[in-house]
Design a protein around this nucleic acid. Structure first.
Lengths: 194, 194
DNA sequence: ACCTGAACACCGTTCAAGT
DNA sequence: ACCTGAACACCGTTCAAGT
């Protein structure tokens, strides 16, 4: 029944591709300053296109958010693959976790969207979220196999912890960002004692 | 310069008080089902009043949220005072933390509002948030004095952890609520080893 | 002191007309 | 295949007129 979610695609025609790119650039800027519920009309006019053009390329806000964050999440997955099977499984997991928290909190509202997408297949970001879930699960499993992380921690739980840290970071102001400390304390809770 | 935030007050005249109460009841119901950005027109019509009446009693959305959550937070503070100076400081802190997470996640969007209010005096919920901060800090200090919680944990950090757990709970679906486990893992990280 | 609801502003979304 | 912008809908917010 519920059709697959719409995933935005870069057009082939030159003018369409130019507008598509301009909209994405404007959207990233707007999301960063105004959060995930930034005005779509602002984004369109910043990109120099009519509102109908924005809707043609990105029929839903979720599809625009997905397209605007796709690269960042792809990098995160790629980095996980590079870290896998290294000599220091705990170090790899921790490094990846720090990176994940930063990506999840690229702009206000993103971590909430990702958390919803993680378990909702009808969502544009679901595919990327699943890939990320697998990446994190691999790194977690390796750290657990090395006996450095408590064996009863599940990947879902890991993502709750990462999301919580990202949410704290998203709420932070320049003078007050407790997310690094948050992650430290979490690590204290999930790593095994020497 | 920046004037004090408006704090809603229950009117003295009977008809005003009746409407005030009806609006609050409708708002609580609406916030619970639609989150903190529920439609104000819906709330007004559910309460059986015109939209202008809602604005008269609650000139800003923040003032309505504050009034709708005041009792719950007062209870939380009162409960902390009852727990203080008991025989089991760690147990008291843990019990209060669990309760705080539940209250913070009464409806979607609340924990974000509280986190903002905690450090912004120009906000209706700031007063209540400060009282809560003090309550939690007292319980934390006692647990630390008893040597049961790491001494370098600050009250601000405690609230980041509680807010993170509440945010996870707010995102949860009936079949998937990782907030209890989240809090367990956090406690593992902040309590001292026997 | 309190209530009503029309009026205005703003923004999301659709779609007919165009190239 | 893509673009434009008018049109419509919805909702937040204000305020003049009323009791």
């Amino acid at each position: 029944m519920d059709g697959k979610p719409y995933i935005a695609q870069r057009p082939k025609r030159a003018d369409g591709r130019r507008n598509y790119d301009a909209i994405l650039a404007a959207a990233r800027k707007a999301f960063e300053s105004a959060g995930a519920d930034a005005s779509l009309e602002d984004i369109a006019s910043q990109a120099g296109v009519a509102i109908g053009t924005l809707y043609r390329h990105f029929p839903t806000r979720a599809s625009l958010v997905e397209a605007a964050t796709r690269d960042g999440l792809e990098n995160l997955v790629a980095h996980a693959e590079r870290l896998t099977a290294g000599p220091d499984p705990l170090g790899a997991l921790v490094a990846w976790m720090r990176e994940a928290v930063v990506h999840f909190s690229t702009f206000r509202g993103l971590v909430g969207i990702l958390a919803q997408s993680m378990y909702d297949e009808g969502t544009p970001s679901h595919t990327m979220c699943s890939a990320m879930h697998r990446s994190g699960a691999d790194l977690l499993r390796a750290a657990q196999a090395a006996g450095r992380v408590r064996p009863d921690l599940t990947p879902d739980e890991l993502f709750d912890l990462l999301s919580g840290a990202a949410w704290v970071r998203e709420q932070a102001t320049p003078d007050r960002d407790g997310s690094a400390r948050f992650l430290e304390l979490v690590l204290e809770g999930i790593t095994t004692r020497d």
